[in-house]
């Protein structure tokens, strides 16, 4: 049973060490999403989400759209409990898994196998669970004996395979995904898509931020548009 509710959630974050009143910042304000405001003195505050409210429950698959800087990643991180709102309330029930920036906790000096354990432990898995999933990760990544070598010897595509395989090896109630399909060779893209689809079917709530409207239409049944930190639910025809 997964629940994810936002009630008038506003997320602001401070930017330190930036010159607040420069012309450049005024231009930035016009061309990107977040509204940049000045807090006390010279600390700038970006309002990444303002007054966002929605309620998600089991079976909801949400597609998030919005241009760069509209607040998609901030919204995903707030959903995950990484960022905390300055006002409003977040209610979250269920085990959360994130596929945001891949490879949190990866150490390039350690082997692929050791990194599977490291990332798995950080994701909250037990050793037995990780051992159980290792075979699946082996066969998905097709890295074979490379898994015994340090990750620093991998090409970026190989590292992505590993990180993606581990990140998608949990069975969460809530799955939050930032666009990650854009990497790797064509064969990997096909496999990643299959794996993602299987995972999406198994979770309660799925939230997916992407610029690819086709993917969003394919996987999602609700659609949110973020613009300047404001969230609006739209119909699939309006994407």
């Amino acid at each position: 049973m997964a629940i994810l509710t936002f009630d008038k959630v506003t997320v602001q974050y401070p930017i330190y060490n930036s010159r607040s009143m420069s012309l450049r910042n005024q231009l930035v304000r016009i061309s990107t999403g977040g509204r940049i405001e000045s807090e006390a003195g010279h600390i700038q505050v970006v309002t990444a989400l303002s007054d966002v409210s929605f309620a998600l429950q089991d079976g909801d698959a949400v597609g998030l759209i919005g241009h760069n800087g509209a607040g998609k990643s901030t919204l995903l991180r707030t959903m995950a409990g990484v960022y905390y709102p300055i006002s409003g309330k977040v209610v979250r029930q269920g085990r959360v898994a994130t596929v945001l920036e891949l490879g949190a906790g990866m150490d390039p000096e350690l082997s692929g196998y050791e990194n599977i354990i490291r990332m798995g432990i950080l994701m909250g898995l037990s050793m037995t669970e990780i051992r159980g999933k290792t075979q699946d990760i082996e066969s998905f990544t097709q890295l074979g004996d490379f898994l015994q070598l340090p990750v620093r010897t991998y090409s970026s595509g190989m590292a992505t395979r590993l990180m993606f395989a581990v990140a998608t090896s949990t069975q969460p109630d809530i799955l939050l995904v930032d666009e990650v399909f854009g990497t790797g060779d064509a064969e990997f893209q096909v496999k990643a898509k299959e794996r993602m689809e299987a995972l999406i079917k198994s979770v309660g709530i799925f939230v997916f931020a992407s610029h690819s409207h086709d993917l969003i239409r394919q996987y999602c049944n609700r659609f949110f548009r973020l613009e300047h930190g404001l969230l609006a639910e739209i119909a699939s025809t309006d994407i």
């Binding site: 995950a80 990484v82 994130t98 920036e101 490879g103 949190a104 906790g105």
Partner: peptide
């Protein structure tokens, strides 16, 4: 930072 920004720990 990578862990803090991506995992709810």
């Amino acid at each position: 930072a990578a862990i803090i920004r991506n995992l709810n720990l």
